[in-house]
């Protein structure tokens, strides 16, 4: 399967004569020192990853880690300093302005943290904007916009104006606007961080539902680990512009690449994320197991009930192959290894 998005050795350096940094010894300097020596800020440093079609790929990092810059480089809202980007197999950096506009109009759409709605247009016209600038007829774009609004549950509000809606509803409009042009890729730049926690959870559900329904490729930027873990098929952790680790939620929690990631995931209730695979042990020779085995994909928490009730260890299997066994001795430390519940 060819990747939808391929990023290779991407750099973005802000500052005076930024292009002199990449490919020289300067590039190896730590961020602060580079800044002191040249006045340049390396926002994205040598980042490479692939995003598969239909995948939800989350980029996570603290503020200032370069994640927003990174996502803007994908459609050259910010011009990268060096490296390669290709979307659907075509090099984005080689595109002329016209082709780039086509890419933005039809292939890749974006949802923004502060919504970026146009206050002088009705909800319907906001959603239709992308189609309008493509030169579609009024009737067509309004029909399509109305359909998309129905998809996000705003069919009642199409004649209202953005400032008459709540924050959550405004972001649904932003979502509908991105969906209206039927792009292959959706980019989300911290779309829910300006919203209340409850609404945020609704919106996350909404994204999951839409992803299931329309099956787009999603690149999702967030600083919220819980959000990343909920939504992401895979998560990339960014620190000071550099990629620290790319992996599934389990990989991150179970096998942090370094102390930075470990620190990050420390408070995550491991039993909620990790599967049995991470805590099972090899069976002792001749050990007897319960009749019913557990799948290795079972999340620890879901196994608690059975394991604690069982008199004997339970086998952990992948299909028919037995990978290991589990009993309360393995389970209990995993359950108490954290002291705070993180809302998911």
């Amino acid at each position: 399967m060819t990747p939808m998005i391929e990023i290779a050795a991407l750099w973005k350096v802000f500052g005076p004569r930024a292009d002199r940094v990449v490919g020289t010894p300067l590039a190896d300097l730590p961020r602060a020192e580079l800044r002191a020596r040249t006045g340049c800020l390396a926002a994205v440093r040598d980042v490479s990853f692939d995003v598969r079609p239909g995948e939800v790929f989350v980029v996570m990092g603290l503020s200032g880690s370069g994640k927003s810059t990174l996502v803007r480089c994908l459609t050259r809202l910010i011009e990268p300093t060096s490296g390669d980007i290709s979307i659907g197999g075509e090099s984005v950096r080689a595109m002329n302005p016209k082709r780039l506009r086509e890419l933005r109009r039809r292939q890749v759409a974006m949802v923004f943290q502060h919504f970026g709605l146009l206050p002088h247009r009705s909800v319907l016209d906001n959603v239709a904007y992308g189609l309008e600038i493509q030169g579609r007829s009024r009737a067509e774009r309004h029909r399509r916009a109305a359909e998309t609004l129905a998809l996000v549950g705003l069919q009642e509000h199409e004649h209202q104006y953005p400032d008459q809606l709540s924050g959550g509803m405004q972001q649904r409009v932003g979502l509908a606007r991105a969906l209206a042009t039927d792009p292959e890729v959706l980019l989300f730049d911290e779309p829910f961080s300006a919203l209340d926690p409850l609404i945020r959870r609704d919106m996350q559900d909404e994204v999951r539902r839409l992803h299931a329904e329309v099956g787009k490729t999603l690149v999702f930027i967030t600083h919220d680990l819980a959000e990343a873990l909920t939504l992401g098929d895979r998560i990339a952790v960014l620190r000071d512009g550099e990629l620290v680790q790319v992996g599934t939620p389990e990989d991150l929690v179970g096998a942090p690449a370094d102390s930075y990631v470990a620190d990050f995931v420390r408070d995550v209730p491991r039993s909620d994320v990790l599967t049995l695979r991470w805590i099972m042990r090899d069976p002792a020779p001749g050990e007897l197991c319960e009749d019913e085995p557990l799948s290795h994909r079972t999340v620890i928490r879901d196994a608690v009930h059975r394991v604690l009730r069982a008199e004997r260890p339970i086998a952990v299997v992948d299909g028919t192959e037995r990978l290991g066994v589990i009993d309360a001795d393995q389970l209990l430390p995993a359950l108490i290894s954290h002291h705070r519940q993180v809302p998911v």
Partner: peptide, 19 residues
């Protein structure tokens, strides 16, 4: 943010100005 959003949807310079 509004300008960026409109750019991300593929507006030309004149569309950005006029719309």
């Amino acid at each position: 943010t509004a300008v960026e959003a409109a750019t991300a949807l593929g507006s030309t310079r004149w569309q950005l100005l006029g719309k």
